[in-house]
Design a protein around this nucleic acid. Structure first.
Lengths: 335, 335
DNA sequence: AAATATTACGCAAGCGCTTGCAAATAAGAA
DNA sequence: TTCTTATTTGCAAGCGCTTGCGTAATATTT
């Protein structure tokens, strides 16, 4: 049995309250008593029971990071959140929902249960609104990252995917390509649809017609990327460039292009989305839309902690801007 | 303010204890009262405060998964742990230590603090023994995965990396290569040293001399893999095959080999370690030592939960066997 | 030296839940 | 009907900690 405050108090010959104050270094404890207590604490390696503490204080100094899939990008965000949170004396627990509503619900319960002081939800489709609502009603503090709530007014922080799509597409256009296709995941995914919007806007700004067949929606897998190319090939009127919204898709697309005996970027210029190991491994190195993931995480962490500490931030939604990292997969086309 | 047991009790006109028993569906509550209570619970979406519950019951139904780096492999293990744990009514929180002793300590405190019922440590160097010890002394339950404790007798479950090294190397030897090099991370890393041991054993079984210069220790990075090849090149007496112990290393090695104008597997056969996206992306597809990660996680989860529930398992250390997944990067050599 | 302001400490209630035990009620056996 | 046994429910202590308030001890002021 671990020892308790009471044990320490008995050993030090003082009241529990004094020990408590000493441990939390609050005022109201004499220098000598404080030292005697701290010595005992060290000697017996006493650690306060956080459940009891949490119960009494109604705060746990814990944050939940609820994440749908745990991709490489998410991981960077998480690390950044953790870094800031730790700095501020909070610990983070990562809850992986696997895109499963049930699990999301279970983890959101951590919030309603007061096991964590706040939660950050990263990506994925948004949970059942009821659940979020009850979590919020019970005073739970929530921040959304890279996803959007439809009706509830929940603080949200995200990278402007529309802008990303625009950057990618206009880069390809600037490089001289005129027929640019987009290979994307599901349009139902908010971020994907935004990228598409950016793509469309860029075409518009260049006074180009939108070709429906150049909008290739896939399942987001490697295989999907592979098929996307051959689909384009079959349709005839092959694009000169591809904007690929996911790195795995890019891998498949590369496979297919090479399989077809074409060269990148000579035959096809390609821009991908997100800096990842994968996009750095594939050859030639991918030009990508780079997202400020660190900043994203940092901001989210700051936001939730401010919320917890009662400082009400000014803006409820914060949008960060991506930029373009030029690789070898896109090159100026002489026309 | 979330409502409490007391609120429900008042509304139902019964004692708190009755509500508690109803909620935990324990015997000793009449059918009608039970229903009345459960209706209230549903109506107000009441959720017991887990801190209070944990404090009273001295158990939280929570597991901590403490992981050093969160690589792709670890992620698979985690998912498998979670799956089983959820099945058994436990939730998992993932604690990422970033190979930082301080953080490891902080997270292990979750155990000593009784915030979790048990913890699973995956990979990485082992924490400060004192910390682990105190955690254990306080009755904390711990299982190690893919790492080893030096002196403490902690239940451990791992994949036999020695066997993996042996499989990889003997495969290359069987394919006709005689000069096989190993490109590895730090020898201080237990798993790496085991792989090396397996490599050496295979050479021995084939009655081959060990060439010190064919043991290439690197920092485990892509760059490290890259340099490894040119180092071998400079040394003269180029190997015919490489056993690479990490996928990132393999990427660098591939880069270098291609850069040198050589072909895989024509000029060099290569075997990597661990099935990962990366090893599946690089071209040609890597032959790898595949680890039963699912089983590993599942077993670890089973183990810790048994421990928590007081069932003492028979073996304190469990070793799983890897096997070989043949890709295109290794091929029979005609000599 | 007396009066006032500080500081150090203990008391006790309370956080929200569980649980052993006793009381009250219902049901079955005699 | 009366006694026994089983079932339903309440009481109250306790889990380990925090904190407001009161008192005793010490320091500061005149």
């Amino acid at each position: 049995m671990p020892l308790t405050l009471k044990d320490i108090a008995r050993m030090a010959g003082v009241a529990e309250s004094t020990v408590s104050r000493a441990i939390n270094n609050k005022p109201g404890v004499g220098k000598e008593t404080r030292e005697k207590i701290m010595d005992l604490v060290r000697k017996y390696n006493y650690r306060p029971n956080q459940l009891a503490r949490g119960l009494a204080k109604k705060e746990t100094q814990m944050l939940a990071i609820i994440v749908a899939e745990l991709s490489g990008a998410d991981y960077k965000i998480i690390k950044s959140i953790e870094a800031y949170a730790n700095e501020q004396g909070y610990n983070c627990i990562i809850c992986n929902t696997d895109n499963n509503q049930q699990k999301e619900e279970a983890y959101l319960a951590l919030l309603s249960n007061q096991q964590v002081d706040g939660a950050i939800i990263i990506g994925g489709e948004l949970a059942n609104k009821n659940i979020i609502n009850t979590a919020l009603n019970k005073n739970g503090l929530l921040v959304l990252v890279n996803c959007l709530s439809e009706e509830l007014l929940i603080p949200t922080i995200l990278v402007d995917s529309g802008r990303g799509g625009y950057l990618a597409t206009s880069h390809l256009l600037e490089q001289g390509s005129r027929k640019v296709a987009i290979v994307m995941g599901s349009r139902k995914d908010y971020l994907e649809s935004e990228k598409l919007a950016g793509y469309l806007q860029a075409l518009k700004d260049y006074h180009l017609e939108v070709e429906e067949k150049h909008i290739i929606e896939t399942d987001g897998s490697r295989e999907g990327g592979y098929q996307a190319f051959f689909q384009a090939l079959e349709e005839g009127d092959l694009p000169e460039a591809f904007f690929v919204t996911k790195d795995i898709l890019a891998v498949g697309l590369f496979d297919a292009i090479k399989m077809g005996g074409y060269l990148i970027p000579e035959d096809f210029s390609i821009v991908g989305y997100g800096e990842s190991i994968i996009s750095s491994i594939i050859d030639p190195g991918l030009t990508v839309v780079a997202e400020p993931l660190e900043e994203l995480g940092r901001y989210a962490a700051e936001y939730i902690i401010n919320l917890i500490q009662g400082k009400n931030p000014e803006e409820i939604i914060k949008v960060l801007e991506p930029d373009l990292k030029i690789g070898e997969s896109s090159r100026f086309k002489i026309r």
